[in-house]
Design a binder for these strands. Structure first.
Lengths: 135, 135
DNA sequence: TACACTCGATCCGGCTGCGTAACGAATTAG
DNA sequence: CTAATTCGTTACGCAGCCGGATCGAGTGTA
């Protein structure tokens, strides 16, 4: 079932989840690394360097390097494809699943708190509109 | 009103919005830059370097540099505080509001498509569980 | 067999971001 | 008035990521 978010809720959701992630001591993944990780874990396999490159509009070297990083974090594994031994398959790991599971909890938690301001940070009264442009 | 997302929905939401953002040609903001921008635009002013630093658990120099970047993108402005001229106030701009508005639309769109697979990408059949750990 | 092509990795120069330390300016304490 | 503190910025060395070009290995084709 779809979830309907207005602009304010969408931004608040993103802010809370992202802030929790930034504040935390987990590894700092770039937006691209995160996009790759999420694609591998939430889209149906198999995943290849080329497929990820085209799907996310990211150059192949960038994918390759991101997989290095994700691999050394233990979030992903490379495996040669036996039918086409040029190709590699990007595989999931338990460690990666745990990481994303915790991240998903942060997002869920952020959604749950929408319009019920966090008890510790000050409430979020009406917004002041953006100031005049700088140029 | 709160929004309840299970883990799969939370990850799918994040993946779709993040992928759209990565795929697009907008500026590539780091997680920290994005967290700062969202804080400035969705929390009540005033915002100072020190406040952002403490709130997000980011060193002051990092905040300062992020503001340089966000400022040169026109998403944010610095203004000296007249009551304490050591302090600066981080102000919003129209350009930044437009950027976040478009981003919010991507998030909303991602939420709207939950459990109704995108028409162009292949549908998202049941997930295969993560493979065994690599270690 | 010989040649073109595909796949992923690596090399290269450049750019961006990081934390620690030090700084000048402004404010506060004594 | 002087000294200590606070605010944000800058200097520095370091680490990571970027795209384009190039590479070797593997595959398809004639």
């Amino acid at each position: 079932m779809p979830v309907y978010l207005n602009q304010d809720d969408a931004l608040a959701l993103w802010r809370d989840a992202l802030s929790a992630s930034v504040r935390g001591d987990g590894p700092d993944l770039s937006a691209r690394q995160m996009a790759i990780l999420l694609t591998v874990y939430t889209q149906t396999p198999p995943h290849t360097v080329r497929g990820l490159s085209e799907g996310l509009n990211i150059s192949k070297p960038a994918i390759s390097r991101a997989l290095d990083r994700l691999g050394q974090l233990g979030f992903v594994r490379r495996r040669r494809d036996d039918y086409d031994r040029r190709s590699i398959e990007v595989q999931r790991t338990v460690k990666g699943a745990v990481f994303l599971s915790e991240f998903a909890d942060q997002v869920s938690e952020a959604g749950r708190e929408l319009d019920s301001p966090t008890p510790f940070e000050a409430g979020t009264p009406p917004q002041t509109p953006p100031e005049d442009p700088a140029y």
